[in-house]
Design a protein around this nucleic acid. Structure first.
Lengths: 199, 199
DNA sequence: TTGACATCAGAACGATCGTTCTGTAGCTTG
DNA sequence: CAAGCTACAGAACGATCGTTCTGATGTCAA
C-alpha cells in the first residue's frame, strides 16, 4: 500500500502508544513493558524498533545509557499559518519541534514561580487580570524588564525603569501612577512568560 | 538549627536537583545515578530518600514498579499577592496552591493544538504577535468565542460574531476590517488559552 | 521456485537494577 | 556517659535489565 521511500518503516501506532504511556506516567518504560505495550513478545524486536525510533529522533539516551524521549518526542504540531489540507500527520511532519508548554516556559524549575495578576495596571503590555505570570526568581533585573517587585508587602508587576539615578516601577496603563519606592527596591523576580486560560 | 517538626526531613536541594535533571532528560534516573546527583555513595540511603519523596507525593511508581514523577513533582508555587517574609520553602510549605501549567491549559491533549499568532489584529484582546494560542480543535463555536478559523487557506484568530444571520469574524483592533466569509465558515478550533514567552 | 529481506519469537548471558542487611560516626537527650 | 536516633557507607543478593544470537514465518521480486 504505502510506498517504501525509506528502507525501514516505523509504525506510528507504536509511537502513539508510547507517547500515551509517557503522558500518563512521565517515564519511558522498560523493554519488557514496551513489548506488552506494543503487543510483541520478543525483547529483541523491541530493541530493533527502539533503534529505529532513536534514529528518527523520537528516542534518545541519557549519558548513563537510560532510554529517554528524543528531540522529536514531544512534537506537538505547531500549526503554522499555512494550512495544508486536513490534519497533518505527526509521524511524517518535517521540521519543527515544539515541546511541552511547561518546557517552553520554564527553564529552571527550582527558580520558577507563578504569580496571579491582580488589576489592570499592565494592560497595555497585554497582561490581564487573572493571568498567570511565569516568574524567574532573582534579586535583580535590567532596566526595561517586567519585574515582580515586593511593595508594601504585596507583589506588584511593573516595568523596571530608571529615573534620575533611582529605580522606579512603571505601569503599562496611564491611569496608574509611577511607583517611586523609598529606600531599597525589593525584586522578587523577572517575568519570563505568561499563561492565560480562557475557558 | 531547624526545628524538627516532622520526624523526618527531606532535603529540598535533593528535589531541586532531581527536578532539574528531569527537566534536562525527561526521565527519572536510576538509584546509582541519583546517588551521584545527590553526592551520596550508598544506594541504601538513596532508597531511603526515595521512600520519603514517595510518601510526600513527589515520586511514584508505575504499575511495573518503575520510578516515576509523583503528583506534586511538577507543581510550581503559585505565589499569591500577600507575601510572607522571605522565600517560601517548597518542601515544608503548607496551604499552597500549586499547579502544573500543562494541566492548567490543556484539558483534552489529543484535541489541543498550538497556533502561533501573526499580526496584531487581536491586540485589544491582549493577544500579541508571537504568542502561542492554545486551541481546542472543534468544528463549531459560540458567538463571542475567540476562534481560529481557516480563511483563504490560512489560520486567522478572531472573535466569532453574528451579523444579519451570518457569522462574521471580528478583530480586536479597529485598524482591521471585519471578515465576512462568503460561503461556509471553516472553524479550526476555539481558543482555550494563551502562552507567551518573554525571555 | 528461489533467494532476499523484513518481521517477529525464544532463549542465553553478563550487566545493572533496587532491596536489604550490617556497621559506623555524629548528635541529642536524659 | 550511656542510650537512642539520624545520616550515611559498603557489601551481598536475587531480580530484572538490555543485548545478542538462532530460527521460524511471511512477503515480494526475479
Amino acid at each position: 500500500m504505502a510506498l517504501n521511500t525509506q528502507k525501514r518503516e516505523l509504525d506510528p501506532v507504536y509511537l502513539e502508544r508510547l507517547q500515551d504511556y509517557y503522558a500518563e506516567h512521565k517515564v519511558i518504560p522498560s523493554y519488557s513493558v514496551l513489548a506488552g505495550l506494543w503487543g510483541l513478545s520478543a525483547k529483541s524486536w523491541v530493541s530493533e524498533c527502539v533503534k529505529r525510533f532513536e534514529e528518527a529522533g523520537y528516542l534518545d539516551w541519557t549519558p548513563d545509557r537510560q532510554l529517554k524521549p528524543g528531540r522529536r518526542f514531544f512534537e506537538r504540531r505547531l500549526a503554522d499559518s499555512a494550512v495544508q489540507a486536513g490534519l497533518p500527520n505527526p509521524a511524517i511532519s518535517d521540521g519543527y519541534d515544539l515541546i511541552t508548554i511547561d518546557d517552553y516556559l520554564v527553564r529552571v524549575p527550582s527558580k520558577t514561580s507563578l504569580v496571579r495578576v491582580k488589576g489592570d495596571s499592565m494592560i497595555d503590555a497585554g497582561i490581564h487580570e487573572g493571568d498567570l505570570l511565569v516568574v524567574e526568581q532573582q534579586p535583580n533585573a535590567n532596566v526595561g524588564d517586567i519585574v515582580v517587585a515586593i511593595v508594601d508587602n504585596e507583589f506588584t508587576v511593573k516595568y523596571l525603569e530608571r529615573e534620575k539615578g533611582a529605580f522606579v516601577l512603571k505601569p503599562a496603563n496611564k491611569a496608574y501612577p509611577v511607583i517611586r519606592p523609598r529606600g531599597r527596591l525589593e525584586i522578587f523576580g523577572v517575568m519570563a512568560g505568561l499563561v492565560r486560560r480562557t475557558r
